[in-house]
Design a binder for these strands. Structure first.
Length: 420
RNA sequence: GUGGCCAUAGCUCAGCUGGUAGAGCGCCUGACUGUGGAUCAGGUGGUCGUGGGUUCGAAUCCCACUGGCCACCCCA
C-alpha cells in the first residue's frame, strides 16, 4: 500500500453516508425549529485561543492538540473543540451588538491527537449548539431539551441525561477546599492517577473509575452551592420536568474543560462501550469575558457524530438511503440525442437519472443499472425510436412497458409513485 | 503516553509441529452479437503490513517499527 490514511482518520462513503445525512439533516431541522442559525468557523485557529479557553492544564491542551507553525512563524492549531472558535467569532465580529439572546449551531470536524479506540478518532465530527446572553435556567433547560429532541429525531431511545451543578467562582472555592480536605485523608488509598490529579485538577478525582467508593462518599458540589447557584439549579430541574425531560443527577459529574460553571450535563448511551458519552456540555458564563469580550452568560453542548452513528447501529435505527437512482437510461445505436433529451426532461422533474457513458452493449448497461440499484431502466433503441416509443423496465419485477416518447415523464412519475 | 489482542488476494478467512501460498465471495469474459439478478465454464488477482534476525530453507519462530481493534488516561 503506497499511501494510507493518517492514523485515527476515516474515509466516509457509500452506505455509511446515509447515517451522516440523517444526523446532518436532523440537526438542521431541529436547529430551525428552535431558531438556531448555523455558524462556520475556520478549522485552524491561533493556538493561544484553545490554551486560554480550554485550559492550560487540561489534557486537550497538554497533549492532544495538532499544533504547527505556519510559514510566517505563527503557532496554529487544528481545532480540538467547537466552543472556543464560536466564542472567538462572537467577540471578533461584535455579535454583542445584535442583542440577546443569540443562538448558533455548527457541524464539522475536530482534531485531537489521541490513541484511537471505539468511538474515538483523531479526526472526529461534532454538531454543537451555543446560546449566548441568558443567565436564566430557561436557557439551560432549552439546550438540554433540544439535545434530547435531536437524539430522538435521529432515532435514538436508549440514552440518559445526566446533570449536575459545579457552582460559580463564588462558591466553587469552598467546595474545592472541602474536596481537598476529604481527599487529604484518603490520599494514601487512592490510585496514582488520583494522586496526580489531587494537585492538578481536584474535581476530576470524582470520576475516577478505580476509587469509586471513595468518590461516592466525597463531598457533593450541590451541597456547597451559593444561594444563586442553588436557585439556578433547582429552576433547571423544575423546567426539565415541565418539558418532560427525564434526567438523573450525578454529583460526580464534572467536566474536563476548564471553562464550565454551574450547569454541566452529559448524555450517555448504554450500548456504546467505554466511550459512552454521546453529548456533553454546560454553562460557561465567564468564558467570553476571559477571552477579551464583555461579560456575557452563555452555554452550549456538542455531540460526537461518530458516537451517534455507533449508537444508531446498536439500536438498529433504519436510515433512508443517501442516494436513490430512480432511472437508468440505456441507449443502443444512433439514438444519443433522443436519449439525452429524455434524460433532461426527467431531471427537470427532479428525477435522478443515470445516463450510460460507457457506450457498452445493452446487457452490460442493464447489469450496471442493476448494480446501482436503479428502480427503472429506460431503453432507447433504434427500432423503438423509429416508431416513437421507448421501453421502460421495472427493475424489480423485470416487466417491460412500451411508452410513447411524448409521455415518458408522466409514465415514469406515475411508476415511481407506485413503487417507492 | 501505557497495556492486551491482531495484520495472508478488493472482501471474509484457511495455511497442522518451518519445506517456498489456497478457498469462498467479488471482479472481467463467454454460453446469451438489443434485456440485469440465477446457473455453468474460463480468467483476473497476493513484494504473506515494513525492516531485521535465527535457519540449508520463514506466511509460520524471535526482535523492532508501522497500522488496526479494544481498554487505560481523557473526552464528543
Amino acid at each position: 500500500m503506497k499511501y494510507a490514511r493518517i492514523k485515527g482518520t476515516n474515509d466516509i462513503y457509500g452506505e455509511e453516508m446515509s447515517y451522516w445525512y440523517m444526523i446532518e439533516e436532523s440537526t438542521r431541522k431541529i436547529a430551525k425549529l428552535f431558531g438556531y442559525s448555523e455558524i462556520r468557523t475556520p478549522i485552524i485557529e491561533p493556538t493561544e485561543l484553545f490554551v486560554r479557553s480550554v485550559g492550560e492544564e487540561t489534557d486537550i491542551v497538554q497533549k492532544e492538540m495538532y499544533t504547527f507553525e505556519d510559514k510566517g512563524g505563527r503557532s496554529i492549531t487544528l481545532r480540538p473543540e467547537g466552543t472556543a472558535p464560536v466564542v472567538r467569532a462572537f467577540i471578533e465580529n461584535s455579535f454583542i451588538n445584535k442583542g440577546f439572546p443569540q443562538r448558533y449551531f455548527y457541524i464539522g470536524p475536530m482534531f485531537r491527537y489521541e490513541r484511537p479506540q471505539k468511538g474515538r478518532q483523531r479526526q472526529f465530527h461534532q454538531v454543537g449548539f451555543e446560546l449566548f446572553g441568558s443567565e436564566s435556567s430557561l436557557a439551560d433547560a432549552e439546550v438540554i431539551y433540544l439535545a434530547v429532541k435531536l437524539l430522538k429525531e435521529i432515532g435514538l431511545t436508549k440514552f440518559k441525561v445526566v446533570i449536575n451543578s459545579i457552582g460559580c467562582e463564588k462558591c466553587r472555592p469552598q467546595y474545592r477546599e472541602a474536596l481537598k480536605e476529604y481527599y487529604a485523608k484518603h490520599l494514601d488509598e487512592v490510585c496514582d492517577d488520583c494522586k496526580r490529579r489531587y494537585n492538578t485538577n481536584i474535581l476530576r478525582l470524582l470520576d475516577c473509575k478505580v476509587d469509586v467508593e471513595i468518590a461516592d462518599k466525597a463531598p457533593r458540589s450541590i451541597d456547597y452551592l451559593c444561594d444563586e447557584c442553588k436557585e439556578h439549579y433547582n429552576n433547571l430541574k423544575k423546567y426539565l420536568k415541565m418539558l418532560d425531560v427525564d434526567f438523573e443527577e450525578d454529583h460526580k459529574l464534572v467536566r474536563g474543560l476548564d471553562y464550565y460553571n454551574r450547569t454541566v450535563f452529559e448524555i450517555r448511551h448504554d450500548l456504546l462501550g467505554a466511550q459512552s458519552a454521546i453529548a456533553g456540555g454546560g454553562r460557561y458564563d465567564r468564558l467570553i469575558e476571559m477571552m477579551g469580550g464583555k461579560s456575557v452568560s452563555a452555554l452550549g453542548f456538542a455531540m460526537g457524530m461518530e458516537r451517534l452513528i455507533i449508537a444508531m447501529k446498536a439500536e438498529n435505527v433504519k436510515v433512508p438511503p443517501a442516494l436513490v437512482n430512480h432511472v437508468y437510461i440505456a441507449h443502443v445505436g444512433d439514438v444519443i440525442e433522443a436519449a439525452l433529451n429524455i434524460a433532461e426532461d426527467l431531471r427537470r422533474n427532479n428525477i435522478t437519472v443515470v445516463f450510460d457513458v460507457m457506450e457498452r452493449g445493452l446487457r452490460a448497461q442493464l447489469k450496471h443499472a442493476d448494480r446501482i440499484g436503479a428502480l427503472l431502466a429506460i431503453i432507447v433503441g433504434e427500432n423503438e425510436l423509429s416508431e416513437d416509443f421507448v421501453v421502460v423496465k421495472d427493475m424489480e419485477s423485470g416487466e417491460d412497458s412500451k411508452v410513447d416518447i411524448n409521455f415518458v415523464v408522466d409514465f415514469v412519475l406515475d411508476k415511481l409513485k407506485e413503487i417507492m
